[in-house]
Design a binder for these strands. Structure first.
Lengths: 351, 351
DNA sequence: CTGAAAGCGCTTACAG
DNA sequence: CTGAAAGCGCTTACAG
């Protein structure tokens, strides 16, 4: 047995793990009181709380989740419904969702579904799996038919990263408009005037918001909008390739491209390279999302980072909270984004 | 309430869910017998089993996992330890791990750790979180020091995708050597003789296996190994960029490049494009892993697919099984890979 | 602010 | 092959 340093007592696996009873005994209180302290109940005398906490630490007590949810009669099952698995996004999302689920004793089920799911089929699937609430990352967060059907059935849902929160759903998002505005303003501050924009999938509500932020920054800087500098994409790399080709074909050429996500920005970098352009010396290129793609390619992309893990965590928390009596009505929540400046953008090139 | 079609009875959330007692009553047996049937115990008369199963179906009974693990006294906690989060890999991995964990009533904890973790620190972390077993995806699956330390402590572990299974660990992998051999043979069959190879991170045991498979295929075809056609990479896109430049600088130029993973293959495509080469007309490029990168870029990559989700599922299953009395000794398991032919490779170009 | 009792839904010995 | 009883570790009313 390797000797390790820690304040927590070591014990071989298989040995008896401390229970509330052990803690109660050591602290000289009842099991109930231990439970109260552990669950953050406020109606406990401070001295008692301290004694219990000390016993918990000394014994290395960790609550048994199974007993907890059995006694609580909860056994809350949350489905993470996803289609179109942007694997990188999903992975960050799952880490956050799982963390909160395990902290609050809920069970997380990951269910894949069609890109354009049949609401009735989903309803069956959820009922068969005894799902109590649903987590909807993009693009499902924007599927109005699906959401209406679930809500009508009384299924609590949380939309993550939608631009259009449903009043009866919990939702967590960033301010996509403000983020796009910030990125565009950064480019303008670096001297760019001819900035190409690649829009995202029109079916996702965030797409319009990003475009609106771009347009507002331009307007605020007194730069006339040039429709030829807007290219339609759909968030795929392939659509980014076509859009970038269109943009780079304009005369005079734009000095910067702001793509609505990283995949399309990466495609723009590829097209620029094919045309013998150096990034960022000859042209600046920025993305959105800060997915793995942003740091995989070279140069690494300046982009907008959403706190995906945290957003998922909060969404799960909201769902769990709503399952308890006296829960407040669902409401939209907004988290801060970060503009991550890396190597793909720079000053406007001299004439 | 939307009307849905299904054999399972619908009920509003919050309503009483059927328990073993309900099933037992309906089937005219004891709760014990229901438990036996549900858990696949063989010592049950066939007629009884059928009756119980019918009751289960009719009531839409689903066992309560919390009660199950509480009664079973298990409450098995498995840590998925990961560093260097190749997000795409991790996401597929988590889906599989989570699926099996929830099916077998184990709890899955996702713990991030340093790229080159201090075994003692990890031991503390695991003990603090009351971890019963550990899941090690790459590159941690190849960290000999970490593995030795955990094993010494008596921690059951499962290595996924290692080229060098530890005799005391469970392990699940594909045959990396055979996969690389298959890919190389495919290229040879298409007429290629000058095939460049980009190796992976030398710290991962799979790297050497992939290279060995490449070499064997060459030897079997009677093609002399040319050391100038081997470039060292480390699995990053950036290293792929440098390796591809080196390879494409050879005279005569290789007609194909086989990179040890998709990121490096994607980098090779980028370099080829920069040099005005068409893929696959002028040069064939293949990857390994079938990550999101493979289908994101254009042309889509011909690559090797590992059943990552299934590998993770099996690894969890092995760990859970080993936690039960009378479990067999851990052993290495091997799953089938698939060669996925897409658009990045073709016939050797005419002279 | 604190506690004694009951019970959550299952499985594990122990019988027969 | 089948069942009655006890108990897993917690929390929830209900008291005081």
């Amino acid at each position: 047995m390797t000797e390790v340093q820690s304040g927590t007592p070591r014990r071989r696996r298989g040995e008896h793990r401390p229970t509330v009873a052990d803690v109660a005994h050591k602290a000289g209180v009842s099991a109930m009181t231990v439970s109260r302290v552990v669950n953050g109940d406020t109606h406990v005398r401070e001295a008692t709380r301290i004694r219990v906490l000390a016993a918990v630490a000394e014994l290395g007590y960790v609550p048994n989740q199974a007993a907890r949810s059995l006694a609580g009669g909860k056994q809350f099952r949350i489905a993470l419904l996803h289609s179109n698995p942007s694997a990188a996004y999903l992975s960050e999302f799952m880490v956050g969702a799982l963390r909160e689920a395990s902290a609050s004793g809920a069970q997380l089920l990951v269910e894949h579904c069609a890109e354009n799911p049949d609401p009735a089929a989903i309803a069956v699937q959820l009922a068969d799996h005894r799902i109590d609430a649903c987590l909807l990352p993009p693009p499902l967060c924007d599927d109005a038919r699906l959401i209406a059907a679930m809500l009508e059935q009384g299924m609590p849902i949380a939309q993550v990263a939608t631009g259009q929160p449903h009043p009866q759903a919990s939702s967590v998002a960033i301010d996509d408009e403000a983020a796009a505005h910030a990125m565009t303003a950064r480019l303008i501050a670096k001297g760019h005037r001819r900035i190409g924009f690649i829009s995202g999938n029109p079916n996702q509500t965030a797409s319009a918001l990003r475009r609106a932020g771009f347009a507002r920054a331009l307007a605020e800087a007194g730069i006339a909008a040039d429709p030829r500098l807007i290219a339609n994409g759909d968030f795929t790399y392939r659509s980014g390739l076509a859009a970038a080709r269109k943009l780079l074909g304009c005369k005079p050429r734009p000095t910067a491209i702001f793509a609505s996500n990283d995949d399309m920005a990466a495609a723009s970098v590829a097209v620029a390279h094919q045309q013998g352009l150096d990034v960022p010396r000859d042209i600046s290129i920025c993305g959105f999302d800060d997915t793995a793609m942003a740091t995989t390619i070279w140069p690494e992309l300046t982009t907008i980072r959403q706190p995906i893990t945290e957003m998922a965590r909060i969404a799960v928390k909201a769902l769990v909270k709503r399952s308890k009596p006296g829960a407040p009505a669902p409401r939209p929540m907004q988290l801060k984004f970060t503009l991550v400046g890396r190597e793909s953008d720079g000053a406007v090139p001299p004439k």
